[in-house]
Design a protein around this nucleic acid. Structure first.
Lengths: 253, 253
DNA sequence: CGCAAATTTGAGAGCATTCAACTCCTGTGG
DNA sequence: CCACAGGAGTTGAATGCTCTCAAATTTGCG
C-alpha cells in the first residue's frame, strides 16, 4: 500500500516527470517547482473518444498530457466541426477558454491518454508569484497562436498536397523533439481526422497518401508511416499554388 | 506650449482614453492604472503600408490601436502571404511573439493609424504585481486564439459565400461594439486583402460582392458597404457545404 | 490630366469534392 | 473458431466550385 502511494507521489512530482522540459516547469527553480507540484493532479486515463472538456464548459482546469494524444475541436453554429489542433505528451490543453471563462472548443482523447489536471484558479494565483511560471504560461499561450497561424497559412494558401506534406513534417519534428524517430511515425488519429484538420475530404487524403507512396515520398502501412524523403517533402510542402497574392505587404516604409 | 504638453498628457492618460473599456486597463483600479499609464508611449501615426513590426523582429513592444486599423500577415517559407487578422481601435497587436521572443508575423497599418506602444518587458513586470492586469493580458491572448479558431473553421469548412458573409457580420459586430453602426461599414482594407484573409481569389470576392448586391443582402459603394439583411446574411454564413464530416467528435463517454 | 493600381467582368480549366462501390480490419456473438 | 456487422480506408467517375487568365473599367494620386 505504502509502496503504491509512494509510486503515485513519485509519478506525480513534476520534478521527476520525464516531460519536465516540455511542460510547465520549464525554467522554474526548485522551490517554485514544489509549489506547482501541489497544484497538479494526476487523472485516471481517458480512453479514445472521451472528452477532457466540452465546448461551452466553464474553464476549470488546464490539462497536461503525459501519454497519449488529444485533439481540439470547434463546432460551428451549423454543426460543422473543425479540428484545430492535435496535442501530444508534454503539451497543455485548455488555453482557449481564458478569455471568456468558457471553453471555445472541445478536447477529446485520440487514444488511451493519461493526464495531469491543473486547476486554473490556483495556477493563475501562482503565476503572479512566480515570474518564470508567468513567462512560461505566456510562451505557451502564444505558441498556440503561432501554431494556429501556421495552420491558417496552410488552409488559406496551400493546395492539398502541400497541406498533407506540411502536416507530416510537422508531426515529424514534434515527435523528434520528444525523442522519437523523425521518420517513423505512428498516427493516433484517423484519416478522417487528418482530413478534417487539413480542410480536405477523407477521399482526398487517402488519394494523397497513395500518391506520396507512388512517388516514394513515404511508405505507409495503415497508421504507421515512414517518411522516406524529407527534403522532397519539404519541397512539396512549400509549393505556392498561388503566387498571385503578393500585392499586400510590401512595406512602403 | 504648456497647453500642448498638457493636451498630450491628457491624451496619453489611459484613464481618459475613450478606449479604456476595450484596451488593457479594463478591470484595473485607479492606483494601478497610474502605473500602467507610465509605461504607455504614444507614437507618431503610421500611414498605410507602414509596419509596426516585421516578421522576425525581436519582441520589444505590444501596440494598442487608438485610431485606424492594422492587419497581421504571416509569410510562408515560399513567399506566400496569409493575413491572419484585422485589428481596430482598442485592440492590441503583437502577442504572437511572446513564445519565441521573435515576431511570427508582421503588422501593417491599413490606413493612417495612431498607436500606443507598450514595452513588453515592463508590461510583464507590472503584470506580476497587478493581478487584474495579468488576467486581462491572458484574456486578450486567448481571445486571439478564439478568433483564429473561428477563422480556421471558416477556411476549413465553409464555401466562399459563407466566408464573406461571416466576414461582414464579424466586422459588423466588432464595429457595433465600438459604438459604430452595425449596418453601415467602411472598409479600410482592399478587396485583395479581404480575399487573402478569407483564402479566396480577388475575383471571387468581387463576384461575391456583386451577387450579394443582386440578392439585396448588401449595398456596396466601393469600400462603403451597407448590410441590408442581417438575418439572411447569418443564414448564408452558417450554411455547411460539408455536412459529411461529422464522424469525429461524438463523445463515446 | 494621366498613369498605375484597384476592381470588375467574362470564359475556360483544374483541383478537390461528392457520390458510389468495394476491400480491409476489428470486435462481437453464435 | 468462424461468421458477420460496422467502421475505416481505398478507388473510380462525374460534377462543380473556385481559380487562372485576359481584358475592360474605375478609382486614386502625383
Amino acid at each position: 500500500m505504502t509502496e503504491i502511494v509512494q509510486f503515485r507521489e513519485l509519478k506525480r512530482a513534476c520534478g521527476n516527470c520525464s516531460l519536465r522540459e516540455l511542460c510547465l516547469p520549464y525554467g522554474i527553480d526548485q522551490a517554485d517547482l514544489r509549489l506547482l507540484e501541489d497544484l497538479v493532479q494526476r487523472l485516471p486515463p481517458k480512453t479514445r473518444g472521451k472528452a477532457l472538456f466540452v465546448q461551452g464548459d466553464p474553464l476549470k482546469s488546464i490539462f497536461a498530457i503525459r501519454t497519449g494524444s488529444v485533439k481540439s475541436v470547434t463546432l460551428g453554429a451549423d454543426g460543422a466541426e473543425q479540428i484545430t489542433g492535435f496535442h501530444f505528451p508534454g503539451e497543455l490543453v485548455g488555453f482557449d477558454a481564458i478569455a471568456g471563462e468558457f471553453h471555445d472548443c472541445s478536447a477529446v482523447a485520440l487514444e488511451d491518454t493519461s493526464l495531469c489536471e491543473i486547476p486554473f484558479e490556483r495556477l493563475d494565483e501562482l503565476s503572479g508569484e512566480v515570474p518564470g511560471l508567468r513567462r512560461q504560461l505566456m510562451r505557451l499561450l502564444s505558441r498556440e497562436i503561432q501554431q494556429e497561424q501556421h495552420l491558417l497559412l496552410l488552409l488559406g494558401k496551400k493546395g492539398a498536397e502541400a497541406r498533407l506534406a506540411a502536416f507530416l513534417l510537422s508531426l515529424s519534428s514534434r515527435f523528434a523533439g520528444r525523442g522519437l524517430s523523425p521518420t517513423r511515425l505512428h498516427f493516433s488519429m484517423a484519416r478522417g481526422e487528418i482530413a478534417n484538420y487539413l480542410g480536405l475530404a477523407v477521399e482526398t487524403v487517402s488519394r494523397l497518401f497513395a500518391r506520396f507512396q507512388q512517388d516514394d515520398l513515404i511508405a505507409a502501412d495503415g497508421r504507421d508511416v515512414t517518411l522516406l524523403d524529407l527534403p522532397r517533402l519539404h519541397a512539396v510542402a512549400e509549393v505556392a499554388p498561388d503566387a498571385t497574392t503578393s500585392m499586400s505587404t510590401r512595406s512602403k516604409c
